[in-house]
Nucleic acid binder design. Structure first.
Lengths: 359, 359
DNA sequence: GTTAGCACTCGTCATATTAGAGTGCTAACA
DNA sequence: TGTTAGCACTCTAATATGACGAGTGCTAAC
């Protein structure tokens, strides 16, 4: 009760807490006072450490799994640790040139297609960190329509091809009730392109569609169907694609490897929709460096209440944003993860952000 | 040595073996002579059973995990069991009307898109059987090119849209070195359609491409690039898409749930390429009912040497074949699996095979 | 405020013990 | 000759036992 809650933590307590956490991150075992006594440069006896530890426990930063065991960090402890670490980020962010090259090489392996690149990123990250990873394909919010074309495939079938900014291609086969002659098709194409090109997809709404139908004149009934289908295919956001990698890395951490937990996590990774909360959450926030850390109960996703999750938003220009995530034990190596993630993101943005025209 | 190897198994041994396997399928525990003695209608004492079991073991159909434990089936034992079961298939194949309706409803949930349907099938199967499942998207071997079109998106960018039989759409953005006027583009489209439409994609080979290039005349250099890219995009078989579901079901079977095994299996399911062997293998064979069963070491895929895998080929007409697979413990409920799979396949083929035109 | 010392707690590990399931074998039986 | 009862034996899984040690909290001395 003596340690005033106002100041929260004096420097010594801070150092001890950090020592505890660091040691625990490495070993995964509860850490005792003796260990810390030797580890720190504070030259304090184990007894003193014990006193401080008792205080830290009372304040909720560390936990004793059972009497006469060492202490492990609580979620609150991790949170403090991570927060202070993030403040030091800028300082550390230079000394990682070697790794940069490594990652660069992996990425540049001339993966021309976006989805290959994404898979590659997920895998690279998983291999480098030994945690489970996910990456969501960039969603084209704020994206514009670049090109649209209807072509006849069969007497009664059309294929609608829509190209969005960033060269994302969508297409859709649609069946029409009456045949349509070439002239009509041409007119329709011109109509669509004239009115829709360059428009942000958000603006393709009911009003606009109604106006288009009207302009289509005689054929408005068929045309209506066609336009509806096109609008549908543009807006369809079943393309919140998420790629995962290294799921089985969770078995490397005993605290996650028991059947119940593992089963839940694996299920979440397989049913990728369950990860969308995470993606949305990350995209909606703007953190320093775009990197966010969720510890234990801070996670929205149920299966990850015993994990830590580090997410980041990447942007490939013009509002094409996606999310990268790393899922591991609460005792994950936050520094390394944040660094690696940061590096990988710059690489991605450099390679695919600038040269987007060539994609 | 007395039981002649020619006759292999008399009826009593057969019954006992079946009893052993059935019991083991249910319990997962080694089964003893006493259990069988009560279970069968043969009215034999445990001692007699013991003698028979000794014989069966010598013949390699059952195994004793350690002295003074019950017996468990060997791969050879399972194989015999499964083979005889498959012979009875036709007889059993009627009594499952209730399940049919159930599955039908699940499927018909108006999933219009192929990939939704596939995911749904995988999930349905996983939920119904409690095993891990996979399904490969139908590959269009023997498929024909139905429609092809190049359109200009930018000054230097074209989008190539190719529609195959079965309304599988492929597309590709390609960048050209010089601008191309409308006339050339039109000619090119005509050229491509004239020569390629209706061709099985296997026949689009180097010779044909060379001839096309030649015919393109003046523009043959650009045209060459374009045709190459188109051919590429047609042939690209990175679309051996595989969907999985219920991976975490493996935790329901202790014999698969230990970390090492689970980790391997999960990895295989995540890196879906590793499953392609299985798909190819299944497609290449033609079994009764299209259903095949791999037991233990019979599996090509390394991670599944401790599992049984049941696969089936489905066909949505015109050579669009895909593979469904169920992966579970060797003591899986083969009868149920085979039945369910059979049912599901008929449903798929009924719903998507006949009405293919509307897809 | 810091430290040394001590008694105490509790989980871990190795060992011993027991219970029970299941077998193989032999001898008796039909 | 095939079947069965009985018995000794084996091996596992479960439980109990006890030593060990890491770590703590507290007190008293510095």
């Amino acid at each position: 009760m003596e340690g005033s809650d106002g100041v929260e933590l004096d420097e010594r307590k801070m150092k001890i807490l950090q020592a505890i956490i660091k040691t625990y991150l490495e070993t995964g075992e509860p850490v005792g006072s003796r260990t810390i006594s030797k580890y720190t440069d504070l030259n304090l006896s184990s007894a003193t450490i014990r006193n401080e530890m008792a205080d830290l426990e009372e304040m909720g930063y560390i936990i004793q799994p059972h009497t006469s065991a060492g202490r492990i960090p609580s979620d609150k402890g991790y949170r403090l640790y991570v927060d202070t670490m993030m403040n030091d980020m800028e300082a550390r962010i230079s000394a990682r040139d070697k790794e940069v090259e490594e990652l660069k090489e992996l990425l540049v392996e001339k993966e021309e297609k976006m989805d290959h690149m994404l898979k590659q990123v997920a895998k690279t990250l998983a291999v480098n960190t030994n945690y489970a990873t996910m990456i969501s394909a960039p969603s084209c919010s704020g994206n514009k329509l670049k090109f649209i074309q209807l072509s006849r495939v069969d007497a009664r079938q059309l294929v609608a091809v829509v190209v969005l900014n960033g060269n994302i291609i969508k297409n859709n086969i649609l069946t029409i009730s009456e045949e349509m002659d070439d002239e009509t098709l041409l007119k329709l194409n011109i109509l669509l392109n004239t009115h829709l090109n360059g428009l942000p997809i958000e603006e393709i709404n009911l009003g606009l569609i109604a106006r288009l139908k009207q302009q289509a004149g005689i054929h408005s009934d068929i045309v209506g169907d066609v336009i509806d289908a096109v609008a549908d295919s543009i807006k369809s956001d079943d393309d919140l694609q998420i790629y995962t990698s290294g799921t089985n890395n969770i078995f490397k951490y005993p605290e996650l490897a028991d059947q119940e937990r593992a089963s839940e996590i694996i299920n979440t990774f397989e049913e990728k929709q369950l990860l969308s909360t995470l993606v949305q959450d990350t995209l909606s926030k703007e953190e320093k460096n775009g990197i966010q850390i969720y510890i234990g109960d801070e996670n929205q996703v149920e299966a990850m209440k015993d994990c830590s999750v580090v997410t980041a938003t990447y942007e490939l220009g013009e509002g094409m944003k996606g999310t990268i995530g790393i899922i591991g034990p609460k005792r994950m190596d936050y520094e390394k993860v944040v660094d690696t993630m940061h590096t990988l993101m710059s690489q991605m943005e450099e390679l695919y952000g600038k040269n987007r025209k060539d994609m």
